[in-house]
Design a protein around this nucleic acid. Sequence first.
DNA 1: CTTCTCACA
DNA 2: TGTGAGGA
Length: 146
Amino acid sequence: MRMREAARKLQVSARMLRHYEAAGLLRAARLDNGYRSLSEADVQRAAWVRDLIAAGFSTREVRALAAALDAGAGPPICTAALRNKLEQIDRLVDALTNRRRRVAERLVRQQQAVAASSTSDHGKEGPGDGNPEHSGAPVSAPGRPR
DNA sequence: CTTCTCACA
DNA sequence: TGTGAGGA
């Protein structure tokens, strides 16, 4: 099959399949006209790649894992890689949790400082303030430049 | 329809 | 990591 059908089967853009191949994660035969021809095995391989990347593996990691697998390594290699990634994610979650806590603490102190200055002689509290305190509320970041 | 490259978020 | 433009 050609790119369009394979992409449809995989629920991925044909663009991504070319991307994967350019990254050395996939290998597809070519027709006489230069078009790619993907076998069912190619599609399954692509699905495997897609899932690993969705799970947070980098192209390097997938490439290395695929190479090891092609070199005759068994499923234990995949198991080890998965366990490894799991621990990596755990460490990441830890780091982010710490970040979140630090930001939350900073916010509390800042608001305490604001409250203290407003109760002293400078009572210039403009109408435009309003500072609702949410502890665990997800705070969006609207300040992205365009 | 497919291919590729360049640029960008 | 993933996409859009633009040309062949």
